[in-house]
């Protein structure tokens, strides 16, 4: 499996929870630029801990890390101080959660513009412009352009998730982390979000955690299989599903365990 340009790379990356439970153990993986990479595996296999480790959201749960996560320009995410980390999360790594989380009490316009607050953009015109662009990219503009002042919590679940994606890309980050973004959505919305991911891959490197193998096949160019905190196999999606190298992977794919 060849990789032309690297967007993000981990070296022996481990996440350990404060109660000594190991989230993921010694993961070496390279995410190619402007492609969708899916992380699959049974629940509790550490794929989500790994993803939350990439932008160090796991700090919130008191996790500790070993190893390193390196961006394309050589920045090691693990060595950043809290303020650099804020910049990194704000400008370079977008994150979309499992459940759509619109900020309560904010309008759609305000909600999507929330990251701009932190980047210090104060020009109303620029804010409007960038919100519009993000909403257009997230395929939500047509549905909400006439009610930008409605509360973001009033949107439907699928719209809320696309709003969160718009919010994550409003600062044009290089990397977009998606943690099972469709698990709380209906099939129609799921289809929309999947289509969206494929489109967004033109400009962003996308890392997608999913428990749905069909989704990985539909969306991802590469797939990594996690089991019990370890990276078992990493290959192009086609190879992975047609010709898995490890027995464990094969068993998982044919549904021997889940």
């Amino acid at each position: 499996m060849e990789i032309r340009e690297r967007a993000l790379q981990t070296f022996r990356f481990s996440v350990v929870y404060p109660n000594k439970v190991v989230g993921c153990k010694s993961v070496d993986i390279v995410f190619p630029k402007n492609e969708v990479t899916a992380l699959i595996g049974p629940s509790g296999c550490g794929k989500s801990s790994f993803l939350k480790g990439l932008n160090r959201l796991n700090d919130e749960f008191g996790c500790t890390y070993t190893g390193s996560v390196v961006m394309a320009d050589g920045t090691d995410v693990m060595t950043l101080d809290p303020y650099e980390l804020c910049l990194l999360r704000g400008d370079r790594i977008g994150y979309v959660m499992q459940k759509p989380v619109p900020f309560s009490g904010k309008t759609i316009q305000q909600d999507v513009a929330m990251p701009l607050l932190a980047s210090g953009v104060r020009d109303k015109r620029i804010i409007r412009e960038r919100v519009q662009r993000a909403l257009e990219k997230a395929a939500l503009w047509d549905e909400v352009h006439d009610r930008l002042d409605a509360l973001s919590t009033a949107l439907s679940g699928g719209q809320q998730q696309r709003l969160c994606i718009a919010r994550a890309i409003v600062n044009a980050p290089e990397i977009l982390l998606l943690d099972e973004p469709c698990s709380a959505l209906d099939p129609k919305s799921t289809q929309l979000v999947e289509q969206l991911m494929i489109e967004l891959a033109a400009e962003h490197t996308i890392v997608l955690v999913t428990h749905n193998m069909q989704q990985a096949q539909r969306v991802a160019e590469r797939t990594a299989f996690f089991y019990e905190g370890r990276l078992v196999e990493y290959d192009t999606t086609q190879n992975m599903f047609s010709n898995p190298k490890e027995n464990l992977t094969a068993d998982y794919i044919i549904g021997k365990f889940s």
Partner: peptide
């Protein structure tokens, strides 16, 4: 590229 040690900028 070097990282400026106060703000994480070039």
């Amino acid at each position: 590229m070097m990282i400026d040690d106060t703000v994480g900028r070039p």
